[in-house]
Amino acid sequence: MQTPIRHLAPLLPHAGSMILLDEIVAYSDSQLQALARIGPDHLFLDENGQLPMWCAIEIMAQGVAALAGCHAHDAGQPPKLGFLLGSRQIDILRPTVAQGSLLCVQVEASTRDEASGFGVFDCRLSLLHEPGDANTDSAETVATARLSVFSPPDIEHYLQEQIA
C-alpha cells in the first residue's frame, strides 16, 4: 500500500471512535509510524480537555495492530484479532497531553513468532510540536513501552478452545 494511509478501518479490528490512529505515515516488514490527532471529540478526553497518558498504551497497541493489518492487507487477508498480553516496561513521561495535540507512534518488532502468534514490540509515543511534521527528531517522547502481544494463527479455533 502507498503511504500515507488515512482510511484505517479496513486495517484494524476496531470500529468507530475506538480507532485512535488517524494516519499511517510509513511501514515496513518490522516497523510502523502512525499519527494520532487529539481532537475535541476524542473518546478519552477528560473533563479538562486533556488526554490522560494511560491511553498511550492503547495508542501504541493500535500501532502494533496497524502494522499487522498492513501486512494482512498486503497478503489479501482481513485484519486479525490480537491480544495485548502486557508489558515488561512502560514509561509514561507526562500525565496528559492537550486537546489539539498531534502524537506520533512508532512500533518496531523486537521478537515475532509467526507460528505461535506471539510477538514483542518496542514502542514510542511522541508529541509533535509542528503540526503536519512527522519528523520525530524534534518531538518530545511522552511514553515508551515494550508490548507483548498474541495473535493466534487460527483465532476461531483458539476461541473455541478457551470456551470448552
Rank of each mutant, 00 (worst) to 15 (best):
A68F: 05
M60N: 08
A26W: 04
L20E: 12
L20V: 07
S17D: 14
G16C: 11
A61Y: 03
Y27V: 12
P40K: 09
I59E: 07
A56D: 10
D22M: 04
V25L: 11
G63F: 01
F44L: 14
A56I: 08
P52L: 09
Y27M: 12
L35E: 05
G16E: 06
G63I: 03
A61H: 05
G49Y: 08
L43C: 12
D22H: 14
E58M: 09
E58P: 05
L32N: 04
V64H: 00
A26E: 15
A34P: 08
M18W: 03
D46A: 08
Q33L: 15
L35W: 06
R37W: 05
L67I: 02
D29Q: 13
H42R: 01
G16W: 03
I24L: 01
A68I: 00
G49E: 06
F44Y: 13
P52W: 11
L20I: 04
I38W: 04
P40H: 10
L51P: 01
A68S: 14
D46P: 09
E23P: 03
Q62V: 04
A65V: 10
L67P: 05
A66Q: 01
G69T: 03
I59P: 09
C55F: 10
A56R: 10
A65Q: 04
W54C: 07
E58L: 04
A61G: 08
L51S: 07
V25S: 11
I19W: 13
V25Y: 05
L67Q: 10
M18H: 07
L32D: 07
Q33R: 15
A34D: 06
L32C: 10
A61S: 07
A15F: 00
G16V: 04
P52N: 15
V25D: 03
H42M: 05
M18F: 12
D22E: 04
L21R: 13
A61R: 09
I57L: 14
V64W: 00
A34C: 10
A66I: 11
W54F: 14
E47A: 15
G39Y: 05
V25I: 15
G69P: 00
A56C: 12
M53L: 15
A66W: 02
D46E: 06
H42N: 14
A36M: 11
R37H: 14
P40A: 12
N48T: 02
L43Y: 14
A61Q: 10
L20T: 11
N48A: 12
R37Q: 13
N48G: 05
S30Q: 13
G69C: 01
V25N: 06
G39V: 00
I19R: 13
G63P: 04
S17Q: 12
F44K: 01
S28V: 01
